[in-house]
Design a binder for these strands. Structure first.
Length: 298
DNA sequence: ACAATTTGACCGTT
DNA sequence: AACGGTCAAATTGT
């Protein structure tokens, strides 16, 4: 738990501002990672998907470089010392690594999935695609089992997309799940129900609070999305998305809009991100910041 | 009867 | 050898 203290001198003020900048950039990085995880599965494989992927990569590189610059310009913290402890729970290079997963005392390392990316969400099965569960496994030192899914079109269309869902150890309400996607969809997913993009912003749910699904879905009772701790969620996955009757009883009325058709619609979707980005850039305005209080965000 | 999920076995990677 | 990811037979659901 970070303790915020009243800055009593210029240097402390600058350090405080720099902390804020780093925090905001890091938040922007995480949000962009989530946005990537949210949007990439919805794009059909092809030029646009590749372009979007490249753009996300470049943006993430920018924030990584900015963070690196801020940290190195700080109070002499080594890159290694600041990153090791706090990055262990960050999404990086598509693979979320727990302390235990990163490296074993005997030096063993876990294999690394290429072409994958992760998000943390309380609604792990709402991503606009249909998945079929093909496995479940108890992972070392994890409280809950990991479930393995592949695209329902994997057989008939050879779609290589897969994902794993694992409930986070730390219990929360609603529970959070780490979802790792691998490979892009190459299938033509013509399900009319997906994606569930709504035209009204959900209430009481922050798009930016890592409830990334709130971009696409209205808030719903958490029980709907709770992964059964031993058996996995069989309510919504593997088959059809919720029926209209089910949805009408559980969700607020909302109008599916499918793909945004106007600039206004697109800007409505992205405006929360822009707002956060602007806040981040405000915090970055630290041309003279030279010090950095040790032991925070990374 | 068919489709989806479960679960132990197997396999490749580290 | 340990581990995570996948397979496939058995089981369950519709």
């Amino acid at each position: 738990m970070k303790q915020q203290m009243e800055p009593s001198s210029t240097s402390e003020l600058l350090a405080c501002d720099q902390e804020a900048a780093i925090r905001e950039i890091n938040r922007g990085h995480e949000l962009m990672t989530q946005l990537r995880a949210l949007l990439m599965p919805l794009l059909p494989a092809g030029v646009w998907s590749e372009l979007a992927g490249d753009l996300f990569e470049e943006i993430l590189k920018c924030s990584t470089a900015a963070l690196s610059g801020l940290r190195n310009g700080g109070c002499g913290m080594s890159a290694a010392s600041d990153s090791d402890d706090d990055r262990r729970n960050k999404v990086f290079d598509g693979k979320r690594k727990s302390t235990e997963e990163r490296e074993k005392p005997d030096g063993r390392k876990r294999r690394r999935q290429l072409n994958s990316w992760s998000i943390v969400t309380s609604v792990p099965h709402y991503d606009g695609h249909q998945w079929r569960k093909y496995g479940q496994k108890q992972i070392n030192n994890a409280k809950y089992p990991r479930s393995y899914y592949r695209c329902t079109n994997s057989k008939d269309q050879g779609c290589p997309a897969t994902k794993t869902v694992q409930q986070e150890d730390r219990d929360s309400d609603p529970p959070k799940f780490s979802v790792t996607y691998s490979m892009q969809h190459t299938c033509k997913d013509v399900d009319i129900n997906s994606p569930f993009v709504m035209d009204s912003a959900p209430r009481n749910t922050s798009l930016l609070g890592c409830e990334s699904v709130s971009l696409c879905y209205q808030p719903s009772p958490s029980f709907l999305f709770t992964e059964n701790q031993s058996q996995g969620n069989s309510l919504l996955i593997g088959g059809k998305l919720p029926t209209d009757e089910l949805l009408s009883g559980l969700l607020e009325p909302a109008t599916p809009i499918g793909t945004p058709t106007s600039v206004d619609e697109i800007s409505n979707i992205f405006s929360p991100f822009y707002a956060d980005w602007e806040m981040m850039m405000d915090a970055v305005d630290l041309t003279e910041a030279k010090t950095y209080e040790k032991g925070s965000f990374f």
